[in-house]
Design a protein around this nucleic acid. Sequence first.
DNA 1: GTCTATGTTTGCGG
DNA 2: TCCGCAAACATAGA
Length: 276
Amino acid sequence: MPELPEVQTVVNDLIAAQLIGQTIVTADVHWNKTIAPLKPKEFRTKIANQTITHIWRRGKYIILDFQSDWHLLIHLRMSGQLQLVPQTHERSKHEHVVLLLNDGRDLRFHDTRKFGRMILTQNPTNILNELGPEPLDQNFTRNQFRTMLKSRNRRLKPLLLDQTFIAGLGNIYADEALWEAKLHPLQIAAKVSPRKAVNLYYAIRKVLERSIVNRGTSLGSGKSNFASAGQRRGENVVNLQVFQRTEQACPRCQTKIRRIIVGQRSTHLCPKCQKL
DNA sequence: GTCTATGTTTGCGG
DNA sequence: TCCGCAAACATAGA
């Protein structure tokens, strides 16, 4: 269930696997909601003969730009995976959309829980402009982040998960960043001191950058856990300090890590390091 | 059978 | 308008 580092890893792998320059011959759609609002027939007609010119990421979206003015936005949601395999490769029941490429490979969208989306559009900015700033963008400054926090009367955890506030954070890295910055998930954003706000800014960048270096976080051993385009798992789980470490010792002070529910989401914190 | 899940949207109600 | 909450989407694994 990918967040920014996992999505970036998929993008990097697709580029490394020479997806740029490929032309889509046709598409097989087995679950219509994945490509909504288009119907399979329109989707197939419009995506046929499109040549991929760029592959990039914005928030948790993977974007394929085509030689025309069309774009394919891919959101993996909870269980989506992209697989680049030879067309002869046996199909599995969770491959809901298959794009057939002109070099004999398929780009397959594997998604057990069916929450993922492929949006074929001429106006990607309609969707992408709704997103908050990119945390790793050079133009995203600590002063900007401090100002953003000041005007919000929301609790930090749900705010960090809000993609219109800041793009790309999910449950793992929100918990990890708050621990790194020694901030309580229930703290109101507007009441965070300027100093702590800057700490949080750097904490967010640190946990995301470190995870990208490690090709993202894959948890457990289940099939729907994160794996990149080459079916390869991420190695970042070794860097998690609080996430899914309930009852284990805080790496900083040895206090037992607690799990609470915030905004319907499981939340992990050190009650000693992260005071309200 | 129960509970949990790395995400997002919708429809309330305060 | 801002904010929080519950439910929905659909499936697998413990």
